[in-house]
Amino acid sequence: MPARSPEDQASFTDRLPLSRHTVDRDYLARERDDLFTVLMADAATRVLPVWKGRALFRGETALNLVEPAAVPADARLVYLGRSTSDDDLPAGTAFVAALLTDEQASSVASEDEWGNLRMFATGLSARDAGLATEALAITNWHASHRFSPRTGKPLLSTKGGWVLVDPDDGHEVFPRTDPAIIVGVTDADDRLLLGSNAMWEKNRYSLLAGFVEPGESLEQAVQREIFEESGVRVVDPVYLGSQPWPFPASLMLGFRATVDVDDPGSLEPDGAEIVDLRWFTRDELIAAGDSVILPGRSSIARAIIEDWYGSEIDD
């Protein structure tokens, strides 16, 4: 498989809904001790409330960015940065995420106003897609890292919400992202390999993917995961692009790879995670119609499949 040109890689990345952004994260401002005092006193600041992994939406195509006064005073806050675009708000507008408890969320909005980014990502502007992705990723980390791993004491939020500190020994805990590879595997006939996960309905198929293990390169992870899940051995992993996937904390790293003609292995699902595997030509994939459900358009999996196909595939 030939290496991709920078132009091809940029074009692929432009098609990833959650990789879009028009926000400067303004990391130096995180050092200010009075950051939230100043921001939350400014009516021009906009806050994105987050509750149980969902963001506050205005319909299906825009976030509901509220004024500071609309957010409970004791909500946990994270500074997201400043807008670099002029949309409905001027460039330079400061954005803050507010991680709400159940009680706080009920005081802010009704339950049907909280939206799932995975479902609505493709309809959002680049600014809103980037804000929601950043906000969900960092607030998911806050929700899952409440106590010190050393002392068990509640961690204190500092530096704009991007560092948590143990109050006893001052140990700092930083956000973590879990890298995962996802791979478009093709054979000598340029057929694409798709698998069905044990947790999905039987006719849902996607690319094979898995987390990168400690001490492992991305290329090694591609070869190991594909063999473990399918019995197929691949060579020549080619990087396509990446997309954050804050459900709850992944970074999906997209690859293409080809079956090793000298040692192809034997196609067989692992039976635990993957229960079915199928090779598809382009004509076979389209002819399958509703009998094969493909990944949603917010995912990098869909972008890789359509990159192989050569154009968008109608739902």
Results as ranks from 00 to 15, higher is better:
2 P>R: 14
13 T>I: 15
14 D>V: 06
15 R>L: 12
15 R>M: 13
18 L>M: 15
19 S>C: 05
22 T>H: 08
25 R>S: 08
33 D>H: 10
33 D>V: 11
34 D>R: 09
39 L>P: 00
40 M>V: 01
40 M>S: 01
41 A>F: 00
42 D>M: 04
43 A>C: 02
45 T>G: 00
48 L>Y: 04
56 L>E: 09
58 R>Y: 05
60 E>H: 10
62 A>I: 04
65 L>H: 08
67 E>R: 15
67 E>L: 03
67 E>H: 11
70 A>Q: 11
82 R>D: 04
83 S>T: 10
86 D>F: 11
89 L>D: 11
95 F>Q: 02
99 L>T: 00
106 S>L: 05
107 S>V: 01
108 V>K: 06
110 S>T: 04
111 E>G: 04
117 L>K: 01
120 F>P: 00
124 L>G: 08
126 A>Y: 05
133 T>S: 09
137 A>L: 15
146 R>G: 10
149 P>R: 08
152 G>F: 03
152 G>V: 07
153 K>Q: 15
155 L>H: 03
156 L>C: 06
158 T>D: 14
160 G>Q: 07
162 W>G: 06
165 V>E: 14
165 V>D: 09
168 D>R: 09
174 F>W: 13
176 R>Q: 11
178 D>A: 12
180 A>C: 07
182 I>W: 01
187 D>M: 04
188 A>G: 10
189 D>K: 13
191 R>L: 04
192 L>A: 11
196 S>Q: 14
197 N>G: 00
198 A>S: 15
202 K>P: 15
203 N>A: 09
209 A>I: 06
211 F>L: 13
211 F>R: 15
221 A>Y: 03
222 V>E: 12
225 E>R: 15
226 I>T: 10
231 G>E: 05
240 L>V: 03
247 F>H: 13
248 P>L: 07
248 P>S: 14
249 A>S: 12
250 S>V: 10
251 L>S: 10
252 M>E: 09
252 M>H: 06
252 M>W: 06
257 A>E: 09
262 D>N: 11
268 E>K: 13
271 G>T: 07
274 I>P: 06
274 I>W: 02
275 V>S: 10
291 S>E: 15
295 P>T: 01
296 G>A: 12
298 S>P: 00
300 I>W: 02
302 R>K: 08
308 W>G: 04
311 S>C: 09
313 I>E: 01
